[in-house]
């Protein structure tokens, strides 16, 4: 059986569960000055599973202290809106798309995505890019893998096998099996989900950003490499991808200087991982 072609992928996108309502709200809020905490609280309270995860995250932060957190409102006051939004976004995605079959563990993909998102937020804070857009794009950058696995599990597992056994980048192995890679598939899925153009660009550009001319694409590409370099997540056979000189130059990045942020990135990643239970 041949692998599904790129132009047939939108049909398979319908087989994936739709984005949770709260994720759609948070993504729309990126470009909406009128989005506010009350509306966010409304979206959260309509989903008891998300409230439960939010309280677990807030209580993991206060572990050992005198007070317990019992409501979404208390969690908002304790953790702050930005952090709340990040926790909600990540937990809603992780638990909606929690595929676990032999050879493919979506939890591992989300751990890596959280690593990239954490790097992206800190890089964004240092380079003047919107940190929320950077975090969201980092979380979503590998969603193409979910679509490829859904469209044809056997072909995707074959690509994963080549990636691990031949020690080649996953996107190269995917191209040899499918004729396209998870950047292409991610663009298809993000378009089907009607995500903002910036996020679509970030997903499409994250392995080979030169030629896209996208600032957020450059930032997610660098975050991808940095996340591998700091060993965030538990990737089998971790290998740092090649890093674009142009992307680093366009972001005005100096590694000796930015290295002062490495400890902060590791601390934030560990904090998120514990908060989300992954």
């Amino acid at each position: 059986m041949t692998a599904p072609t790129l132009d047939r992928l939108p049909d398979h996108a319908e087989a994936l569960p739709s984005l949770p309502e709260v994720v759609n709200y948070l993504i729309r809020a990126l470009n909406d000055d009128n989005a506010n905490l009350e509306t966010l609280a409304h979206h959260i309270n309509s989903d008891p599973a998300i409230v439960a995860r939010l309280l677990a995250a807030a209580n993991s932060v206060t572990a050992g202290l005198s007070k317990r957190v019992h409501s979404a409102g208390q969690a908002f006051l304790l953790l702050g809106a930005d952090r709340i939004a990040s926790i909600i976004l990540a937990s809603a995605l992780i638990y909606r798309y929690d595929t676990h079959t032999s050879g493919f563990n979506a939890r591992m993909l989300w751990q890596h995505s959280l690593g990239v998102a954490t790097c992206a937020r800190v890089l964004a804070e240092q380079t003047g890019v919107d940190p929320e857009l950077a975090f969201t794009s980092g979380l979503l950058h590998d969603i193409g893998q979910l679509l490829m696995h859904t469209a044809s599990p056997s072909h995707f597992l074959k690509a994963l096998d080549r990636h691990l056994n031949e020690d080649i980048p996953l996107f190269v192995a995917e191209r040899s099996v499918f004729g396209y890679d998870h950047c292409d598939a991610g663009r298809v899925l993000a378009t089907a989900w009607k995500l903002p153009t910036d996020i679509i660009d970030a997903i499409a550009a994250h392995h080979e950003p030169d030629g896209f001319g996208s600032e957020i694409g450059n930032l997610i590409h660098v975050s991808e490499c940095l996340s591998h370099a700091l060993d965030l997540g538990e990737l089998p056979s971790n290998r740092v991808p090649d890093l674009s000189e142009l992307a680093c130059a366009n972001l005005g990045l100096s590694w000796p200087k930015f290295a002062a942020q490495f400890a902060e990135i590791e601390a934030r990643f560990d904090d998120f991982r514990v908060s989300l239970g992954i």
């Binding site: 490499c225 940095l226 370099a229 700091l230 740092v240 090649d242 890093l243 674009s244 000189e245 992307a247 680093c248 590694w255 000796p256 930015f258 290295a259 490495f262």
Partner: peptide, 11 residues
């Protein structure tokens, strides 16, 4: 790339 080498040295 040399950018990757610089990242390696920094890490």
């Amino acid at each position: 790339s040399s950018a990757r080498d610089q990242l390696r040295d920094a890490v």
